[in-house]
Amino acid sequence: MDFELVQHAVPVLLKGLGITGLLTALSVLIGFNLGLGLALMRLSQNCFVASFAKYYSMTFRGTPLLVQLFLFYYGLGQLPFARENAVTWWVISDGTRCAVMALALNTAAYTSEILRGGLMSIPAGLTEAAKAGGMSSLLRFRRIEFPLAIRQALPAYGNELILVVKGTSLASTITVLEITGYAKRLMSQTFAILEVFVIAGALYLVINIILIALIRALERHLMRHEGR
């Protein structure tokens, strides 16, 4: 391993770390809320709303993220209504914003499945007791259903977070310079493929290990009543 090269590569890849973190944070923030909404839609009594959520998740989970990314970044600009609307154009005209949109919509589909599982695992008696206690549906959701569902869903959601981190690497294909984008550039500039891979891979592993530790800590915090 060439030490001088490592010295050159590390700062460059660290520059990409910020963008990777930003992409992850924004798309998780948007995707979680969308996913929660979709999970509630999926469980709604209205069959149109429920089937919309079902087909949304089927479409986004059944196609590769790369196709979604290309469809949004290259494809949407061709549609007149997307090009002429100021908001949609603001989103799709920039690689980073477009990547956040694609990642958020993609993770929303997976999140909705995870949260749906969590919401369905709530014992009916608890909801009924809350109803009998006179809680409004919003209060019931906030105090009873959501806290129970999130505890159930947290381990699976941790896996989904890792998938989002790995998904951000695809943003490099639509001109965003994050870790993988810089890594590819360095690989073709220096031909030190293994060295660059090791550093970039280590950065991703560190992000993922930190995320896993955070999720575990949150899980322990939420489950502290169990008392081991």
Binding site: K166, S169, L170, A183, K184, S188, F197, L205
Partner: peptide
Amino acid sequence: LVRGVPELLIIYLLFF
């Protein structure tokens, strides 16, 4: 390692 590193990076490594 493989599950923690993006697929794209692994593909770049093997190809290049």
